[in-house]
Computed example of a mutant assay.
Amino acid sequence: MADLPGPLAAFIVGEMRRARGAAGMTQETFGRAAGFSASHVSAVEGGTRALTIDFIKGTDRALTSGGLFERLAATFGAPSWFLPWLDAERAATQLRYFEPNLIPGLLQTEAYARDVLRLDPRLTGEEVERRVKARVERQSILHREAPPTLVVVVDEGAIRRSGLGAEKMMDEQLEHLVACAERPNVSVHVVPADVGVYAGLSGPLSLAHLLDGGWVGHLETQLGGEVVDRPGDLDTLFERWESVRNEALPRRQSQDLIKERLTNGST
């Protein structure tokens, strides 16, 4: 599962299998109750099929466990509101991200991700480290045999933002961003500061194109996030994406701007 460290996903699957056996359920009877075929259950338990949030929720229904397994995934992996988007991200053939304030998670270094996650005062040091590891593991989709096409647009403010004492961390992040942008499946674009006010400043957005030809969107707020799949809402997100993309610099000019920031600093 893309949002959980591998050992944790294996642990949760093992606990699900043990709970199914303790309930006296075969893979077939369990699958009917959970909403999956017996072959799907066998593949997840055997490690040849990914553990998804839908399977986790189905397990909780089938075993009447009161949401135990979803809480395990949320507590030790990503927040529960983020899990459906991560399932879409893992299955996507194309991904589009716009961020007005931060570098998107798929292109973050460990140090940058750690600094961002530390901004949440509710997270303990241990929880921050778990989420840093999970965020970095998400990036494996960019290195698989058939990686998705990733198009990222960031505001210039995101590449110039750096706090006192964080200059080295930010330089390493920008070097990593440049290296990522040189991959054939990754395109990074920057909206320059002289654009002024534009539609994207209202907040980040994400879009994923799935194997079945459909699209899924994601919006993140201070309180959580929402997966968007209603046609009218998707139309609005596409209009917003096109507006943002049209304000951004071409790929090569964007890389030059990032490299200029590396050379001259944040000023």
Rank of each mutant, 00 (worst) to 15 (best):
M1R: 12
A2H: 13
P5K: 09
G6C: 08
E15T: 00
R17F: 06
R17A: 15
R18H: 04
M25L: 11
T26P: 14
T29W: 04
G31D: 09
R32E: 15
A38K: 09
H40G: 13
E45T: 10
T48R: 06
A50F: 14
I56V: 08
I56F: 01
T59M: 07
S65P: 10
G66S: 09
F69Q: 00
E70L: 13
R71Y: 01
T75K: 11
P79C: 01
F82Y: 04
L83C: 03
W85D: 01
A91T: 04
A92W: 05
Q94G: 05
Y97N: 11
F98Q: 12
P100L: 04
N101M: 14
N101I: 14
L102Q: 12
I103M: 08
P104F: 06
P104R: 10
G105E: 04
G105T: 08
L106R: 10
L107I: 07
A113P: 05
V116K: 01
L117K: 00
L119E: 00
L119W: 05
P121G: 05
P121F: 01
L123E: 00
G125A: 07
E126F: 10
E126P: 05
E127V: 05
E129G: 04
R130A: 01
R131Q: 01
R135M: 14
V136F: 10
Q139T: 02
Q139H: 10
S140M: 15
S140A: 14
R144T: 03
A146Y: 12
P147Y: 02
V152P: 05
V153W: 03
V153R: 09
D155Q: 11
E156P: 11
E156M: 08
E156Y: 14
R161K: 15
G163K: 11
G163T: 10
A166G: 13
K168M: 15
D171Q: 12
D171V: 13
Q173T: 06
L177M: 15
C180I: 07
P184R: 00
V191T: 07
V191I: 10
A193M: 15
D194N: 11
G200F: 11
G200V: 02
L201M: 15
S202H: 06
G203A: 01
P204H: 14
P204W: 01
L205T: 04
L205W: 09
S206I: 09
G217T: 12
Q222C: 01
Q222Y: 12
V227H: 13
V227M: 14
V228P: 08
R230A: 14
P231G: 00
F238K: 04
E239T: 09
W241N: 07
E242K: 09
R245N: 13
L249T: 14
R251L: 12
R252Q: 13
Q253A: 12
S254E: 01
D256G: 12
L257P: 00
I258L: 07
E260I: 06
R261D: 04
R261N: 05
N264Q: 07
T267Y: 07
